[in-house]
Structures are given as C-alpha cells and as structure tokens.
Design a protein around this nucleic acid. Sequence first.
DNA 1: GAACCGTGGGT
DNA 2: TACCCAAGGTT
Length: 348
Amino acid sequence: MREAARAEDLLEWYDRHARDLPWRIGPRARAAGVRPDPYRVWLSEIMLQQTTVPAVKPYFEAFTARWPTVSDLAAAEDADVMAAWAGLGYYARARNLLKCARVVASEHGGVFPDSQEALLQLPGVGPYTAGAVAAIAYDLPATVVDGNVERVMARLHDEHTPLPDAKPVLTGYAAALTPDERPGCYAQAVMDLGATICTPRNPACGLCPWRPSCAAWDAGTAAELPKKVPKKRKPVRLGIAYLARRVDGAWLLERRPDKGLLGGMLGWPGSEWNEAPEEAPPIRAEWKTLPEEARHTFTHFHLRLTVKTALVPMERVPSRGEFVELPAFSPSDLPTVMRKAFDLARGS
DNA sequence: GAACCGTGGGT
DNA sequence: TACCCAAGGTT
C-alpha cells in the first residue's frame, strides 16, 4: 500500500535544495521570521507567468533597481515601463502591471492586500498569482496551482484526464496537500520540485522525495503525464514593415494601440498581418525592399515580415508615426519582432 | 469554453 | 524543421 504524500517531506527536501533566486530571501532571514517584500513577490510572479526563470532574472533586476517600490513603479511613465518590458513578451502583463501598481499606490496606501480574495481583484492578478503572493509574501495557506503543480499532481495521482479538463481535479489534489505550517515555503517547494525534479521530460524520479507516494511511478507513466489536448498548428501570416530613417538619423516609429497583439508597444508602421497584406507606406519615399524577410513566431501564428527601408529628408511629414532621434530611441525598446526588422535594416 | 496573447531554449 | 515547454490572465 502506497503512503499518502506529505507536505513535510517536501519541505524537508526544499530546505536542502531551495534555489537562490533574486526574489527570494535567504533561509537565515526566513528562520528569523522575515517575510519577502510583497512588491518583489508580485513583480516576480507577473514576470514568471509563462516565462522561464533565466529570461526573467535580468528584467527583475532592472525593474527593482529602477523602481524599488510599488509607489515608484506607479509613478513611472507608461512608455518607460513598456520599453523596460520589451523582449519579455505578453505585453498585456506590462500594461496590467502599471494599472495594478497604481491601484495599490492610490487605493491601498502602497501596500499589497494580504488576502487572496483582495489580491484577485487587482489587474493582471489571477487565481495563481493571488495564491502565490498570499502564500509567499504573507505565509497564508493558499492553494497555488501552476503548470508545475498540475504536472506533479497528475503524476502523484496517475491522473490521465487531459488538461485543461483535469484542472479542477488536480486543484483539489493540490488543496488537500497544502499545509498550515510554512505554506509559503511549501508553495515554492512544489513548484521547485516540478521545475527541477518532476520535469516535463525525463523526470528525475530517483531524486524525488515523493516517489514513495507517486502513483505514476508505480504505474511507470510519470513521463507521459500530464496528458494535454493537442494544439492547433499555427497558420502563416504575411506583413510589410516600413523603416524610414531621416537624414539626421531619426527613425519613424509608431505606438501600437493598447489592445491586441503587442499592445502599447513601439513598432514600425506597416501593413496589416494577414494572407495578402496591402502596401501602407507611412511617408512618401523611395522604398527599397530588403532581400531577406524577418521571420517571427507568435503564440498563434507564424509571421513573415517584408522589410522596406527609405532615407527621407528633414522636412518630409509622415502620415503615420513620429520620428524619434537616436538617444531617445533604443532598439532594445522594441518587441522582438520589431527588433528583428531593425537588425535586418542595419545589416547586423 | 475557446481564443488570444511573446519569447527563447530544448529536443 | 517543427513542436513542446515555461511560476497564466483576460475577453
């Protein structure tokens, strides 16, 4: 008979194997009763949504250095925050990040709410993030279910129902395991287990503290769980981007509308992205088409972007966008697809 | 519930 | 090359 998994066994493992991450506090401080700064916990959790730890680290360091508190962030210019987020993806997170910071600053006195229910009301904060902040920052026994936890629970219980249908059942399993002692450490421990031991492929079951309790280990099915419904394949869309450089070196850029793809980000004026894009030059010029197109894959389609360039005189007025001189504009302010087009135009 | 929303790394 | 995957949320 298999013994039920115990939270304390995982906590013991965590105390020996916890990773040192920029948004975590050390074990000595934790033992002394210090809690991590809710602002840093929240910021890290937003950045970590669907994003890997290595990708997040430099952005987290940059944000916390530039905006040390939520009130600092609330006072930031929109364009500065969007530029700082450029390259990290899912730009609605950055827009909601600012909204949330301003709500916390103006309606909560600069202090994050200390309940999962209140956290859930904040922009960009869903069930996972509300639980994570409640648990990690406030040590509340919230049930935290991310992709790691889903995978760990599916394997512990040898659950073969495909996601997302299995989500409620897996959440129930996770809730039953959540302890009243050290729930913040426990939440991070399950996610660390999923990230380092109970991995999607080639799980290191030999190192797993919960192997004696794992139904999938017994059944030999761990590596094939969790089941997921197959994804649709991505269609190819075409587009045209216009990179106009004024003789003084300024580039013609356009702020994208707040909603939709790359919402709120800076980009090159261009056509719609579809099966047969139409010419849409933002300024009268002799446009040259680059020999190579910029290729980029988004969440739900592949893009092949034709890049056109032109050199325009000082007095020429664009029909769309604004010229931005070089010190005010850095290519690192652009989302990746736009930076790819820029790199092609510069020949780098 | 399903679609939408980025990016980089691994296999 | 193509697909999978990552500490999801919003509409």
